[in-house]
Design a protein around this nucleic acid. Structure first.
Lengths: 114, 114
DNA sequence: TTGACATATTCCCATATAGGCATGTATATT
DNA sequence: AATATACATGCCTATATGGGAATATGTCAA
């Protein structure tokens, strides 16, 4: 079996840094594709493809306005990600844990090759 | 260019559902590989490979105990993910936003093919 | 209708995956 | 030393990717 599709869920879609940048950019206001292209410095087809992925997993919403397509982030779709990571929050808030981590990190440097 | 490596960062590593399950499982206590195999119902080599990915991005720590390798989740490495998703939290906490989303979701069903 | 503009789609390709299977390596036991 | 146990690694394959370039689609303007 190969890697899961980027369009299979929010986790996979968001793994791509460029798509996270797009979501950041479209979080505050809806914008046409051209603005994203100018802002991210990517080729227009690339941006359209990224938007296609984001749209399939519901991370962005679109609406046509003349010949412009206005995209914007649908934060609700990021929620599952937030909920999952939140489960681990308590592990790094405890001082004790952090102290232990630091000590173990040293012996780790030898084990973790590359 | 192809897709980024699963070992390039926590975002990519965590995109795989099985790896998230492993992180959930190893969050509370350290466990040998055999336990994970039994718990997830995956082949041992698969588990070892997943653990290899998680280790390379620092999501798990290992320590040898006899012929057992004791793994456990390093929650600290999940933190960047949490921080990023947290930025969007305010968008779903506002009632107004949610109401608007719901209304727009309807017209979306026609646009979002597949 | 013709043309310009905005965006989407298609084709091509090098690259990395995840699983299955076989095998290698390290440690403990006798 | 020989064997069993616990993991790790290597090999193979189908599959999806992201970027680049070219082209198609859709909308407005004259």
């Amino acid at each position: 079996m190969a890697r899961a599709r980027t369009t299979s869920d929010a986790f996979n879609a968001v793994a791509e840094p460029r798509r996270r940048e797009i979501l950041d950019y479209l979080a505050l206001a809806e914008r046409p594709v051209g603005d994203i292209v100018a802002s991210l410095g990517l080729e227009q087809p690339s941006v359209s493809k990224h938007l296609g992925v984001l749209r399939k997993v519901g991370l962005v919403r679109v609406r046509r306005h003349g010949r412009h397509m206005l995209y914007r982030t649908n934060a609700e779709a990021i929620r599952p990600l937030h909920e999952w990571t939140k489960e681990f929050e308590r592990f790094w808030t405890h001082q004790l844990t952090r102290v232990k981590e630091r000590a173990e990190a040293k012996s780790q440097e030898r084990t973790t090759t590359e």
